[in-house]
Design a protein around this nucleic acid. Structure first.
Lengths: 248, 248
DNA sequence: GTAATAGTGTCTATAAGACAGTATCCG
DNA sequence: CGGATACTGTCTTATAGACACTATTAC
């Protein structure tokens, strides 16, 4: 190597990156939402090869002028119309050379939590996009998932369940900026798949600094009877300490 | 698109992946160990451009016939002689297009926890490899780190500290297969940077199912006086429940 | 014996689970 | 009023922090 005789600028100018192996970089999105009292996930039906007809995570190639995070934000906007101002976090990168028959494709998965958005339109690649209950995806639909997306979904679900324990993200599922304690508790119950005692949940949430703050407003539900409930908004905490622990 | 008229095999045969943007895929290693009662991290001094002379994480390009995990295992073996039978886990992927002046390089960082291995030899690319205390890396050495590696190290340190809470990985730092409760506690104290009360630590560790199991053996330390201590080995737990919480 | 380290027991403070009781709201 | 939902209080259990005490070992 004679590179030591060059300045850095000279070195960069003569550098040929194509002599190193290159791969296609993609991002896949795990867009979780709550619909019909169930945790649901956005999937597309693949309109083209490979894995034609199977269900897959939405995603696409990373452009050379954008970061992975920016590519994920762009895809989220394209698929759902939701801006990434909410929760969008990198999950993991999947890089088995045989996961895609087209070649070496490494895919970085991102998890997004969104409120009840409009039904997604079919994207321009003629792939029908829809939300499916996670319980069905992991159950009867698990055989119809493309690539290694079942594994990615399992990893993402574990991340979401864990994230609710120590990060203030549950309100991302709620459409309104303010919410009742019951609505807030329902998010935890649906994501964790458990029932929680209302009074203990309230005590815990109110005791964690910065988790929620009372608005002073009240609201009645759509039900027949019942007391009007206090409204809260998300607090300023970045992490929840002590965490809300998922019952074992 | 007329791809819908093709079988999948025909489609794959005529598929030209080069029409999509490609990037160079690399893995970077965060090799943590404990030396001299300090948490230390393996860094190399870069022998070539770019970022010549700066400190960087060891790593390298991913070959086209190996997965990201396999590339990380290979690099770990090359740098330290340690097999990946211990703890080696993906941390995060860094994909800012401007992080490396040579072009679009996306790097997947892995965290490894290793016992006190031999001093690493300079690798074949003439880069001097050494362990440095993490406190120095984040302090006076932080200005001399290449690329975005300071950020990666901060993320990795947070992961290691959190991982000790809920995963049985502390024994990966210990040279021997068996260890005393004091040695085990020192790992937590060094990684977390706190002092822990011995009796409470012991009670907690012994109450978590599958965290450690007694060997029935005893051992005396090298010190002047002192009672011989019970020896333990790692238990079979995959996760620690309830977790050991880091003091706030 | 003393100094040093390992291990046990216990009191207290904090947090979590269970659930009874009170407060509103609708019709 | 009754039925329904929201909120409060309290008893009990589990866990964590602080620290005194006992047990071994080297010298």
């Amino acid at each position: 190597m004679n590179e030591n005789n060059l300045t850095e600028d000279e070195f960069i100018a003569q550098y040929d990156m194509s002599k190193y192996p290159t791969v296609a970089a993609t991002v896949d999105l795990l867009v979780f939402t709550i619909r019909d009292e169930q945790l649901q996930l956005l999937l597309i039906e693949r309109g083209g090869h490979p894995e034609k007809g199977k269900l897959a995570l939405p995603g696409g190639f990373v452009n050379t002028d954008e970061s992975l995070d920016e590519a994920a934000e762009r895809e989220l906007m394209e698929e759902t119309g939701v801006s990434a101002s909410g929760y969008l976090e990198q999950l993991k990168t999947y890089g088995n050379p045989h996961r895609d028959r087209r070649g070496f494709v490494i895919s970085t998965a991102y998890v997004a939590l969104v409120p009840h958005v409009a039904d997604p339109e079919a994207a321009d690649d003629a792939a029908a996009a829809d939300f499916y209950p996670v319980s069905e995806i992991l159950g009867e639909l698990s055989e119809t998932l493309a690539f290694d997306h079942l594994q990615i979904i399992e990893d993402g679900l574990a991340r979401v369940r864990a994230k609710l324990e120590y990060a203030p993200v549950a309100h991302e599922f709620i459409d309104d900026e303010t919410f009742t304690m019951s609505e807030f508790r329902r998010v935890y119950e649906i994501v964790w798949g458990v029932e929680l005692l209302p009074s203990n949940f309230r005590r815990k949430v109110q005791s964690v600094p910065g988790m929620v703050e009372p608005t002073g407003e009240r609201r009645r539900t759509e039900a027949d009877g019942g007391r009007t409930s206090d409204l809260y908004r998300a607090g300023g905490a970045e992490i929840l300490y002590p965490p809300l622990r998922q019952p074992e």
